[in-house]
Design a protein around this nucleic acid. Sequence first.
DNA 1: CCTTGTGAAGGAGTTCACAGCA
DNA 2: TGCTGTGAACTCCTTCACAAGG
Lengths: 268, 268
Amino acid sequence: MATGRTHRPATRSRGIPEATVARLPLYLRALTALSERSVPTVSSEELAAAAGVNSAKLRKDFSYLGSYGTRGVGYDVEYLVYQISRELGLTQDWPIVMVGIGNLGAALANYGGFASRGFRVAALIDADPAMTGKSVAGMAVQHADDLEKIVDENGVSIGVIATPAGAAQQVCDRLVAAGVTSILNFAPTVLSVPDGVDVRKVDLSIELQILAFHEQRKAGDAADEGEVPPAAGGVGVEGPAAKVTKAAPSGGSDRKGPDGDVPAVMPA
Amino acid sequence: MATGRTHRPATRSRGIPEATVARLPLYLRALTALSERSVPTVSSEELAAAAGVNSAKLRKDFSYLGSYGTRGVGYDVEYLVYQISRELGLTQDWPIVMVGIGNLGAALANYGGFASRGFRVAALIDADPAMTGKSVAGMAVQHADDLEKIVDENGVSIGVIATPAGAAQQVCDRLVAAGVTSILNFAPTVLSVPDGVDVRKVDLSIELQILAFHEQRKAGDAADEGEVPPAAGGVGVEGPAAKVTKAAPSGGSDRKGPDGDVPAVMPA
DNA sequence: CCTTGTGAAGGAGTTCACAGCA
DNA sequence: TGCTGTGAACTCCTTCACAAGG
């Protein structure tokens, strides 16, 4: 997950597990592709493959939405597209504001994936006066001074922060004060928000670090020994096959101290 | 999660849970900030607050790495920075290639968060001949024809895909064939890779859709009854009955039927 | 005392496997 | 017959609460 959660301590809300919600967009994308190819129905097996999950999980996910399938047949593509869209709230218009129009912000503004899902970029905001008035993705960048007014006039409830880390919390506070209740944060910093506000984060460097962790392990395994033949583990798409990743050499319980490692960067 | 998991279902590796690995970069960032302020030690409570998690979770996470703290005192900041860096494999150099230098790819190339964590952009690759030779983030963009050579000569094991969805799988296949074993995918598509290759994905539109889901719920709650001031009814907090959508209390299985919902903002 | 480290309890999410229905 | 929908088992993660130890 490149993303972060935030709210929902104890609520049950309506019962759809968070993990399921996170997969609905995936199903929707796969279904949309099928719809464009005019495929009328699809089985859980096929759809699961297209979405990169396993079929039992998919069926369980759909069961939280209701019984939208037909036994012996599968799911009606168009119907499911509609139901999932509705569940996700994509049948309505979501005006969003984007704050911080640097490299990343501009790239996001140009990203086409928004509009196609009911999201409409209502305004681009930047604190740099030099940016004000410039056209990015066909829109004039507005100055941060007008943030509150922009949020209010456009009825914005979702904000995207793509500012430098140092400015993120302040921007966040202003967005929240202006009425925004959902924030997508690209700045590499932890945002604190009051209850009732959702924050999700996307952090590129965190994703790479997680990959590096596994990459390092692979390298270590390979070097460590030649063992560990096919076991059970797969990568992305299904695959009951094997993954390598090695098992801990020791069962050692005394983990204290570095494992005889190079102290290298130890503090002064 | 904006991200996707991928491998390791059954392996125990060295025992560090995936959820913990995903948080290590967060701790590292917080620790780095403390280190820059020359703070010598930190308690689990303080560090947890800075990282946005709760302290019990943080202590449990650290317990998987070893006993690096001192009871009654806390953790030595510099020492922890080093241990986590080592655990994540950041004490070594990771050359990465970025494929697809469009708006997003260029923004990523300019992103400073990579270098600071041991990641080095070894090459920028694009399939468009018009891009070849152009300078982006101080590097000359190379043509996709040379992908294999580039990966091989630079010993690249991590690739970043920022191409359009249609080209992603093909690029992915070539990267993998060339020896890349970890991929960070920004293209809105599911990649299939052989066992042993890790894929993580970042999808902007998915993140927004998840926010929209919760946003929609909030709106429904508020409308349902007389608001909900900044009390305890907000978002995650309890919400007695779920007004929206059916809930089929009894073991009843007849959830069928489309929306038993409030039409609310339904489009035409 | 104060804070870590951790067994144990509690939840959440996933997978299994099969009953149920078209 | 074929595929959905789902109880139940299982695995993974989180939280609690307290013993251990500086």
